[in-house]
Design a protein around this nucleic acid. Structure first.
Lengths: 134, 134
DNA sequence: GCTTGAGGTGGAGTGCACTCCAGGCGGCAG
DNA sequence: CTGCCGCCTGGAGTGCACTCCACCTCAAGC
């Protein structure tokens, strides 16, 4: 089974070396295997788990909650129902996040449109207008 | 023209009183008008600007960039082209953010589906399966 | 007149998620 | 043999965006 050096994992996952060590320290990664001289060697499984971490992190899950999820994963198959609960809950939060982002984005786009509009009115004809209620 | 007490602005904008003061201190809000005894009174315009701030902040614009935008706004109409550049640029970033979120969300949903699948297989028939490549 | 509550100030503190540093080790290319 | 590179450790430091604190003042209600 293939193993990865820290450098390769940095390359593959996009996490910095310091971040990987940090994640191990706080227990988000279980202790990573070592060579005789003490260097880390990540397994395929470690890298896959880091992929999961990336998804959760990039969708805004705080580390404390990822830790809770990590503990569930370590409990093995009997925690699968709980894991579904955690992920489904997070999925809902991501959905809400996207909806909120879309809404705010529309306000920004309206503002851009408003500015474009102001520019398209020749200076001489421009009255004292209100800005839109953003 | 209507004015708002700090409490009313907290109510309307959802920013905390401390945050409002902080925004004024760092110059994200221009100096807010005061009563004779020194209490803030926000104008309609201040509140509208706070609405803009909220959009930008909630879509991930760092304060440093909001400050740049605020400076443009203070320069008046001749900065409108620059403001469009800033907002359009940010709009693109928000779009990318949403796309990324959607993608990560799908990975999470696949994971949920995988877990549901594991649960639906009676224990006795369950083999030694790999987790999906997240 | 006294309490209560909203608000004022300057400055220190917080929480999160890293990120950096000094000093040291093991392997290998020249 | 000598660099140098990649990696090791414990611990300190960073950046961001607030948030809290102690202490003070004003305005209104009982």
């Amino acid at each position: 089974m293939a193993v990865y050096t820290p450098g390769q994992v940095v390359e593959e996952t996009g996490f910095s070396l310091d971040t990987l060590r940090y994640y191990e320290r706080i227990g988000l990664l279980e202790p990573i295997g070592r060579t005789a001289s003490g260097q880390r060697r990540f397994t395929e499984e470690d890298v896959a788990w880091l992929g999961m971490i990336r998804c959760l992190r990039d969708t805004g899950m705080p580390i404390a909650e990822m830790l809770r999820f990590a503990r569930l994963v370590r409990q093995g198959d009997r925690s699968i129902r709980d894991r579904i609960v955690v992920l489904a809950d997070h999925d809902r939060k991501v959905e809400a996040q996207i909806a909120d982002l879309r809404q705010k984005q529309q306000a920004i786009q309206r503002k851009i449109a408003y500015y474009r509009d102001v520019l398209s009115i020749p200076d001489g004809l421009r009255g004292r207008e209100e800005e839109p209620a953003s």
